[in-house]
Structures are given as C-alpha cells and as structure tokens.
Write a protein that binds this DNA or RNA. Sequence first.
DNA 1: TGGAACTTTTAGACTAAACTAAATCTCTCT
DNA 2: AGAGAGATTTAGTTTAGTCTAAAAGTTCCA
Lengths: 218, 218
Amino acid sequence: MNSQSEEDYLKALYHLQTESNSVSTNSIANYLKMKPSSVTDMLKKLAEKNYVNYQKYKGTSLSKKGKLVALQIIRKHRLWETFLVEKLDFGWGQVHLIAEQLEHIKSEELIEKLDVFLGNPKYDPHGDPIPNKKGRIEKMNQKLLVELHQNQKGIITGVKRGTASLLSYLDKENIKLGDSVKVLEVIEFDGTFIVEINKRKLTFSEKICQNLLLETYD
Amino acid sequence: MNSQSEEDYLKALYHLQTESNSVSTNSIANYLKMKPSSVTDMLKKLAEKNYVNYQKYKGTSLSKKGKLVALQIIRKHRLWETFLVEKLDFGWGQVHLIAEQLEHIKSEELIEKLDVFLGNPKYDPHGDPIPNKKGRIEKMNQKLLVELHQNQKGIITGVKRGTASLLSYLDKENIKLGDSVKVLEVIEFDGTFIVEINKRKLTFSEKICQNLLLETYD
DNA sequence: TGGAACTTTTAGACTAAACTAAATCTCTCT
DNA sequence: AGAGAGATTTAGTTTAGTCTAAAAGTTCCA
C-alpha cells in the first residue's frame, strides 16, 4: 500500500513526463509546491520501491510499475470528478480539490462499483479519458462539435476547460455526457448548428459548438 | 481544520461516552487499538483545543464543541454508508471500512450535496439516525415490524445488524429505505404479516418482521 | 490502613514527510 | 578550460503521531 504522498508524486511524474524523457527534480518541486530537497528524498524512496528510474542529477522517469499506479490514481480522480459533476451537480472549479482527496480512498471494489454506477464513462467532464482498470487509455477521437459536418454523429464527452456554464446549460436542457448527437444542418451565415439529441431537435450557437467535445466514429 | 487522527479520537469519545459520564484512557486505547500512552498525548492536545474536558487520572468527556465535531463526522460516515449501500449496491460487511475513509474528506459542500442526492435520509442502512448539519439527531421512534399491530403504519429505516441478505431481498422486491408500510393483517398462527408497500400487497415471514426497522408515528 | 494490582502519565525514541542551509554537481559561455 | 549560475543533493532539524519502558497515581481488599 502506498501513502498519499507517494501517490501524489507518482501522479505528478505522470503529468510532467512527456513521452519517454525524464523529469527534473525542480519541475516536480514546482508542480507539487515543495522544496527540491523534499523531492529528492521522496524520489529515492520511490526508486527503492521500483516505481521510478532515478539517477542522481540526471532526472527521473516512471517505471512500468509506477506508471500503472499513477494511471490507477488518475482513473479514480476522473471517475470521482464525473460523479461529482454528473450526480452531485457540482460546477467545475470545485471538483478538482475534492477529487484530489477522493482519489486516495483505498478500495478496488469501490472504484469498480462507482464505474458501473456511472455507466462506465470513457471520459470525465473535462473530456479527459478515464483509464480502465488495467491502466489502458482508449485512443480517443475527440473533436469539437464545430468541426463536424452535416450528418456526422458523435457522443458527448465533455466541454472545453473553463466553460462551466455550458455544462449547466446542458444540464438544464437535460443533455448528459454520453448522449448521442447528430448534425442535421449547419447554418453558414452564423455558424449555428441544428442537431438531434435524444430524438429532440436543438439549435446550438457557434459558441456552444466551439466548446462542446464529442467522440466521433468516422 | 482537524487531522484525521483527531477526528478518530473525537468519534471514539462520542461512541464510548454514555450520557454525561466520562471515558477512561484505557477504554479509548482499546477502542482505537492504540497504546494508552498515545491516547494520553492526544487527549492533552484535544483538551488544548477545547474539544474535550480532560483531567489527569480522572477521565475525559467531550466538550460541546468536540461533540459537534464528532457528530459531523458521524453524519458524514452515515451518509457515505447510505450512498454505498443504496447507490453502489454494496453489502454490509464492506461499507464500514470504506466509510471510515470517506468520512474524513473535507468539504462542507460535498456532504450537503450528497445529502440532497440521497434524498435527505434520516437513517442509514443500519437504522442508525443521521445527524443533521447542525449535529441534531432527531428523536427516533424506531420499532421492529414485528412490534406493530394491525393498521399501524411506519417508514422503513433499515434492518438489524448482520442481516445483509434481508437488504438484498428488499432490493430485489424493489423496496427501499423511506418506503411506507401499513400492516393490513397479522396471521397469528405463524406470525406472518400482510402489509402494503407502494400500493402493493406483500407477505412477510415472521423472521423478516423481526429484522426490519421502521420509524413509526403514533 | 497499607500494599498489590491495575490504570494512567511521563520520558525518551522512532518514522514519515516536510523544511533550511550548506555542499556538490552540471552546464554554459567566454 | 574554468568560473559562475543554476540545479540537485546532503546533512541536520521539525512536527505529528505513534511506540516502549518506567514512574506515578488510584483502588480495593484483607
């Protein structure tokens, strides 16, 4: 079992590591708002447990094992965020801090049942993909609604960052993540889209279309 | 903000304290599976913060302030337990340990929204009352179904401890906490009850009646 | 009423995870 | 090449919460 702190470091590593190159001690310290010396200590400990490849002065990268743990925490984080937004009606600014706490709750079964309860969502409300139990992230094919053309279909996966009010608008219209959308018509003049969702015909302004994320199947 | 450990001690105090008499250091140690010396240390700290009345060698009791904090943790615990059983379909043995973790999540708003989401339940699935936001516990008038007589009514609040399978039976029959029950008839011969729930007529064996908790209004 | 048995507290030590300050390493630029 | 800047590590300290061992207090009964 890993401590909360260890989990935070692994998650930070995951978010900071682009492709296969390694991450500097300073950048981790900066990301986690800690002193570099504290980071060094923890990296040694994580290296000891084979979660990271750490070489003095040379940077750090996640091992396979560490990456899997990181992905499982991210899975929990995103499932809880989905729960908070979808079921408890939270806005966005708020969910991150709470999910940051919830992601450390220890129980395999809890997270599997939560997943089922939420309908096995593939994306969280920000449109970020939710890794599966084994840490696999499905290759996603996400587009903004504005990028679709007539007769294309997609599934609503989220909205762009910082557009909380769009989410509440959707909520008011009874539109949820996972709903199917078909583009019936695009009005060239003002960029308005006429779409069909749940057998209802709806009109979306250009601005909405620029912020609504869909998963498309080509 | 209180630490997880502080919260555990306050909760223990609440559970151990019968009426107004004080609790011994040893009994707390025993309850929390810790050494008495550790308990003494923490009690001093809690006394410093005015959560408890502590006198060397004389026992400890919760202050008004400490009791309120304890009740708020118990509120969280019971709401989460309700969530786990009602929404995530957990059995009983499992929920306590998970709720023990969830009860320490810090967010007023989370717990209020959870309360709303669950329909402001007054009892958790064990039939224990859920304190309100201000720490008030409604005086309860709980009885077992077997104690009711013809034409009496009640609201299902839970089942007795250790009868998880009854909960799943109720679930299968589509009966939920909060449903109204009216006793239509009691068969003297075998103690069977004929009741009405949700406009449906149902027959409950004596054993069921001995384990089903109701809130009655006389 | 005095001492054995039990309870409780004190004193001192340990661990995890943070910190500060100082030492060491690496990199780059002239 | 080497000197300075910046990154990183080391060494030593701190805090919360636990522990063990020993000292001190309380209770109760012969």
